[in-house]
Every structure is written in structure tokens, then in C-alpha cells.
Write a protein that binds this DNA or RNA. Structure first.
Length: 278
DNA sequence: AAAGATTTCAACCGCATGTCT
DNA sequence: TAGACATGCGGTTGAAATCTT
């Protein structure tokens, strides 16, 4: 026995909203509000729609304060910083971007920002344009007794900066704020100027240094992580695998069949990789 | 110009959580 | 306190738009 449906699907219209439906919903909400009950709203408004669908349409499209159009560089930075800190909590991230919805942010991340960031993070431009040696190795150190040091991708491209969790320069235990450098691909912006973003931990639960998990127990396990959705959106068939303490990124498309070996020593910044949607 | 491939994004789905009785 | 119901959320889907060959 499954869960009872929230509405009678047989008598409910689905799919794209017509301008007429939009008008009806908007007028009704402007006059009467939600009435504290989205489920009953479509019937009251005279719409053959599910209440959840009405709610989504209003929140994601019809609300007067919705900001349509492309994301700004500043918004990119905020999304990246929060995503790296709290993961795919889109509603929290969207709440930091006035006029943006969680759906917007999620779509933007999945279709554009992730690609942009990923490309910058593994320094593809650098490899493709400036390096005849097709195989590079980057070293990442994790100090489990101290903090997660996501560290030194800069060996690959000194222009690419990464957040270092737990770095006392950025994390101040007695302070009400956390300052993080921004992760970005400078190849996309020749005028890149390193910036800092100040976060309010009460609004955004940044992991503290000692909260980082100990990955050592999994260091000898073999992981193979891949995503068909990811492969699709990246126009590549890519995979990330961990074997014998080495992460290997294997992909085609923009990587052009190259393989990048990431040496994590004895421990693995799984959270970082996981945080970027691997 | 047309067909196929890829990207975008609105909308849906189902689970988790909150609230009310 | 438990159950029913509503809402919120993140993941996923698929049609339309756009790009490439």
C-alpha cells in the first residue's frame, strides 16, 4: 500500500502552465493569499491543478520579487562558497540570493556553474594550452589531527585558489564570521581579482575543523563514483575512482582523454569531492 | 536546410519534517 | 502521544530551445 496521493491526479491538469492559469493564480493569491492551505487553493481559485503545483508555480515563477535572467559573478561566488560549505541545500543557498529560488540555483549549478568550476578546479585550460606533458600529479595533504586542508591545487595552476577549511587565517573560533577565499576558474575571467566573502555562521553552518570526519578507515577501500546525469551535463563520459589512496579522474571531452592523478596521501577529501557533486 | 545532439529549465515526484488534533 | 495531513525540499524528468554537423 503506497502513500495516498496529495490530489486526484486523474482530474488534475499537469505540464506547463498557460498564461490564463498564471493570471488566475496570481489574481487569487494577490486577493486572498494562500489562505494557509495550498491543497484547497486550486479549488477555491477555480484551477484544475494540484496544490503543490500551484505552490511551486507561485514560488518559482509568479512571485513579484522573483529575479529572472542570468546570474552575476557575485552570485556565482556566493553559490560556490555555500555549496562547498553546506552542499546541496539549495533553499539555504537561495535564501542568500534575493530574488532567486532554490530551483533556479539548483538548475544553474547543475547546468552551468558546476561545469565552470570543475573545469577550473582541475586546471584544464592550463593543461590543454600550456602544458605539453599530458600527465600531471597534484598533491593534497590531509592533517587529520588538525584540520582538513583541502589545499594545494595551486601546484597545477597558481592562479587557481581553493578554500582551506580549518585554516586559522579563514576560520576564527571566537569570531562571529568566517572569511573564505573564493574558488574560481581564472581562465573564465582575465580580470580576476581574489575576493573574500564573509559568512554568518548562524545563517550557514560551516563545518568546524574538528568536525571533519576521519577518512583513514576508508583509505584502502576502492571507490568508483560516476553519474550519468553528470556525464550528460558535462558532455563527457567521466568517472572518478579511488584506488590505493589515489583518486583518478578519467574523462573525455574537454579533458581529451587525459587522466589526472590526485595523490591524497593516506586520507581522502571525500567531502570535498562529494561536495562538488561527484 | 535538415537531422541529430546537447543544453536548459519548468515541473513533477516522493520523502522528510512540521503542525494540528 | 500518535496519527493524519500540509508543506518544504532535493533529485529527477522531459519538452522545448539551441547548437552542431
Amino acid at each position: 500500500m503506497g502513500r495516498a496521493p496529495c490530489c486526484d491526479k486523474a482530474n488534475v491538469k499537469r505540464g506547463p502552465w498557460s498564461p490564463e492559469e498564471d493570471t488566475i493564480l496570481k489574481n487569487h493569491l494577490e486577493k486572498h493569499g494562500t489562505g494557509g492551505n495550498w491543497i484547497a487553493l486550486p479549488r477555491k481559485a477555480g484551477l484544475k491543478r494540484c496544490g503543490k503545483s500551484c505552490r511551486l508555480r507561485w514560488l518559482n515563477y509568479l512571485r513579484p520579487d522573483i529575479k529572472h535572467g542570468g546570474f552575476t559573478e557575485e552570485e556565482d561566488k556566493i553559490i560556490c562558497t555555500y555549496y562547498n560549505s553546506i552542499g546541496s541545500r539549495w533553499s539555504v543557498i537561495a535564501s542568500k540570493l534575493p530574488g532567486r529560488t532554490d530551483n533556479d540555483v539548483k538548475n544553474y549549478w547543475n547546468t552551468k556553474l558546476k561545469k565552470k568550476l570543475l573545469a577550473g578546479r582541475i586546471g584544464l585550460d592550463h593543461m590543454n594550452n600550456n602544458n605539453n606533458n599530458k600527465e600531471e600529479e597534484m598533491s593534497i595533504s590531509i592533517n587529520s589531527t588538525d584540520h582538513l586542508n583541502v589545499a594545494q591545487f595551486s601546484t597545477l595552476d597558481p592562479k587557481v585558489e581553493l578554500i582551506e577549511y580549518g585554516n586559522p587565517d579563514y576560520y576564527h573560533p571566537n569570531s562571529s564570521t568566517l572569511i573564505l577565499p573564493y574558488v574560481m576558474d581564472t581562465s573564465y575571467d582575465q580580470n580576476y581579482v581574489p575576493q573574500e566573502i564573509t559568512l554568518d555562521p548562524s545563517q550557514c553552518p560551516i563545518p568546524k575543523p574538528m568536525e571533519v570526519l576521519d577518512y583513514s578507515t576508508s583509505a584502502n577501500n576502492n571507490y568508483s563514483i560516476s553519474s550519468s546525469q553528470e556525464a550528460s551535463s558535462l558532455s563527457t563520459s567521466s568517472s572518478l575512482a579511488l584506488e590505493n589512496n589515489h583518486f583518478s579522474w578519467a574523462g573525455n571531452g574537454s579533458v581529451q582523454g587525459d587522466e589526472i592523478l590526485l595523490d591524497f596521501g593516506f586520507e581522502t577529501p571525500y567531502e570535498l569531492l562529494n561536495g562538488f557533486g561527484f
